[in-house]
Design a protein around this nucleic acid. Sequence first.
DNA 1: CGTAGGCTTGAGAGCTTTCAATTCATGTGG
DNA 2: CCACATGAATTGAAAGCTCTCAAGCCTACG
Lengths: 252, 252
Amino acid sequence: MATSTPAILPRVSCDQCPLRQCRSFRDFSSEELGFVHDFKTGEVSAAQGMSIMVEGERNPQLYTVLSGWGFRYKILEDGRRQILNYVLPGDLIGLQGHLMEEMQHSIEALTRMTLCIFERDKLPKLFRHHPSLAYDITWLAAREESMLDEHLLSIGRRSARERAAYLFAFLDARVKSVAAPPADRPFILPLTQQHVADTLGFSLVHTNKTLRRLVQQGLIRWLDRGCEVLDTERLYHVAEWRPPKEGKRPFI
Amino acid sequence: MATSTPAILPRVSCDQCPLRQCRSFRDFSSEELGFVHDFKTGEVSAAQGMSIMVEGERNPQLYTVLSGWGFRYKILEDGRRQILNYVLPGDLIGLQGHLMEEMQHSIEALTRMTLCIFERDKLPKLFRHHPSLAYDITWLAAREESMLDEHLLSIGRRSARERAAYLFAFLDARVKSVAAPPADRPFILPLTQQHVADTLGFSLVHTNKTLRRLVQQGLIRWLDRGCEVLDTERLYHVAEWRPPKEGKRPFI
DNA sequence: CGTAGGCTTGAGAGCTTTCAATTCATGTGG
DNA sequence: CCACATGAATTGAAAGCTCTCAAGCCTACG
């Protein structure tokens, strides 16, 4: 967990936003775009391993992820850590710290990330004057909730192999919905086995043995600090899961 | 899982709503109250064991719980069931089915429940004309998310004993925030050991052995189809958890 | 009085953790 | 360039936790 200061980047106009080109996001009216642009105060870049928010913090920044991966987690006093979910481009983070008294979880950068910073005090104004955007925020919250529901089902009731298969199927589906594959090279999920262990609720050793089995069966390949998904369909089958069919989704 | 038809009850005016007297809920302006009353189309009562929504359903009703307990759950094809969270008075349910294509989980009544039915088509109108209520809905979604985060931490990283202690501490805190204790008698959490097992991710047998231990240590008492919390502080300590300090919360 | 649902218990099999080492690639300072 | 420290992945073995199987008990209810 590095703690260097984040690099502040110049503000880029929202209609230039490369992420907005992505076909999974819904189109915004120029009026909406105008407000969002106004809502935005700048961009930051966070290095791998940097902590972006920490549990207990009051009134943190409100961000949208522009690029890179992060993860949300909680820890118990003795250090046991549970990863709650992953954060990818298009995700809105820090909302909880505004609605509740303080942040109830922490977020750390899994790769280098760039984040779009919003002016927190304008959130009430957004609700007052932009019902369509307010609706979008609620939509995003409902989507997060539904991902957490699936994680709970997985941790609570799936076997080790099924659980791991679910995780990779889930992450694979998520990256694919926000990024074009890097030219003729496969997607790599930028995880360490410790992250996988802390997501699935297993020890590192057992995680290793479980992954090894998936590798031998040709479902995934394990690289240094990363996982390549080889057979999506078979993962879906093992996990007994399919990616939800989402129409266009909002992106603030 | 009974399947008798729900009993439709007459509509009661919202400013008479007994739940609204409860001091954990924020006050509404008469204007807000007026809209909510208009939003409401009636009440239903559901018997114990009745299923209120089922996974896959499209466009379900939107309800607020007025009284009783329910639970949200998901099941795998072979019948393994995971309880995701409990539903208590003041909770809004069915929102997901409107924002997403279809319901991603089911809800069943744990005791007899009465529900307040909203007119689903007015949700957009709510966002357009009542930003404060839209904000409340988002608030409720964020709160649900934060409960799920805690459940994930619990299932993923706590030991059997800690996990059970967390569950009872959590439920105890939740009932106490929405109901006055039944005159000079203790609160009873209306669960069966099978529900506990499906919440904690354990088998029934192991759940029984874990509960037995908590009983012997004087933390809880187990009744037929119910749990009485005896020592809240000690439960908090075992679970290494405290109820979140919430100010007034919205209630739609 | 018989049945059903919920709670208990013991025992063996199976899954997961912990402990202890080892390998390998990368990066740093001498 | 080499020696050394570090982070990540791997492996075997024993201890500990959890599951399944198999009964039995008890109460409520028709």
